[in-house]
Amino acid sequence: METIDLIDLVSIGLLLLGALFFLTGTVGLLRFNNCFARLHALTKADNVGLGCIALGLMLQAESGWAVAKIALIWALAQLAATVSAHLIARFSLRLGGGVRRMPP
């Protein structure tokens, strides 16, 4: 722990930030009572969280290939997240308000 160089400091910060975002997303998921609010919380917070963690890891990666792979993972995760959010929203919209029957 003698010398903590700058890169490590930044990546630790990014990882913690990402974890924080995930935490807020989950709290949002549990607290909100209708489907759309929960979707909103999840898509926003978790994706940003994932981005921060991905950045943090990229700093640690040795080779350029590893960086490219992490970026690819992040891109695919974004695509999947958007499409599934879109589908869930469409489905619950047609279903009627998306309000959960029972309070959480």
Partner: peptide
């Protein structure tokens, strides 16, 4: 069909 499914398939299949 939902709007986004077409582009998703277009991107995912080759990948």
């Amino acid at each position: 069909e939902p709007l986004l499914v077409g582009p998703l398939i277009a991107f995912i299949a080759p990948m």
